[in-house]
Simulated assay, not measured.
Amino acid sequence: MRIVHCVSSLKVGGAEKCVKNLIKVQKQKGFDVEVLSFGDKSDAFQYDIESLGVNVINVKGNILTRLLKAIHYLQGFSTIHIHSPAVIKAFAPIFPVLIFKNVIYTIHGEVEPPIGFIKGSHKLAQCYINKVFGVSESIKKGIRQRYGWNSHDVTVINNGVYCPTLPHQIAKQPILNLCTVCRLVPLKNITQLVEAFARYELGHLATLNVYGDGPERGVIERLVEVHKLHDSVILHGEVLNEDAIYDHQDILLINSTTEGLPMSLLEAMARGIPVISTSVGQIPKLIQHGENGFIYDVGDIESWHKLILSQIHDRDKLMQVGQHAFAFIKQHYAIDDVSAIYEAAYR
């Protein structure tokens, strides 16, 4: 069995990270797996995937060149796993080639990308797709409006993450390490957290580690400068090594105004790191407040502050919540279990 995962790019994103996790476990299991990407060789996750010994083919050039390359490459695989609506569109002119393949399609995004001919290409794709997965119930329920497909044809599958054998040891240092892991854009609302750090003078109780980059970085840097937070708010930039991010963290903060199901939440919980998050998107379906994490309403920064203080002062409770988070993710989101579901579809 030869499997090729097809993506629009290997830039940093939730779908791309899920693909990377899936490829890693499939490679470890001995599958013959490769990647077809319409992105650039410089894409962040391409190096990570190639370092696993997995071949990545970048399909570039004009439309005719890309199609000829894709046809030539796809013929060598029995199973084609597509992870992007943009790939469905790109494959529309060569759909006869795909009719004779086992084609799996996973829909990762809650919102359709703003590109043309999406509905038309997906209508055509019904001729060759053998199995459709969606990473949330909302994707399954909205599939008729989205593409005109029957929701019964979509199987919900969780995004998978790696789970260590044991949860991390947290809350052992006098000052807690809090972190955010996201693209620095307005909807992530990191500026509000930095302002709250200054207003409530949290710098003597905790450190806020900001991982990620984006258009809001300059605004955050100015806030750090104005409020003299250089010792308590640290901007690390974009870091791809998950262990380098999470190994010394005690709490993950998510302050988004809108979300689907962020991979950072799964990654932190998988390591036994509790999450304090706004109650948006799929997050309230995972987090049972006070049991395996904490949630608060968007904009309710006073409740956020109370949650921070309670975790700082009750370390035993924080460690217990972290253990519950670890157990929950291990039961429902372990990458080995997710991969096993896909492997059944590949056969």
Rank of each mutant, 00 (worst) to 15 (best):
I283Y: 05
S277W: 14
E302K: 14
D243C: 06
A171M: 06
L176S: 00
I273W: 00
E201P: 06
M1E: 10
T65V: 11
N102A: 10
N292E: 04
D337Y: 11
I107V: 08
V275Y: 09
K11M: 11
D337V: 13
A198E: 03
N130R: 04
Q311A: 11
H230M: 10
K20E: 06
I283W: 10
S232V: 09
A345V: 15
I170L: 03
I129L: 10
D153T: 10
E34V: 00
Y333H: 15
L166E: 14
D314I: 15
D48M: 05
V156N: 01
E34N: 06
V33W: 02
Q126K: 05
V33I: 10
E221D: 03
T106V: 01
I251L: 02
N62R: 13
A344G: 05
L266Y: 14
Q145N: 12
A325L: 14
V224R: 00
H324K: 15
K123D: 06
T257N: 11
Y200G: 07
Q320W: 08
M263P: 07
Y128N: 05
K141G: 08
S42A: 14
E16V: 14
K17G: 04
F100D: 00
T257H: 13
H5C: 08
N55Q: 01
L265C: 12
K123H: 02
I143A: 10
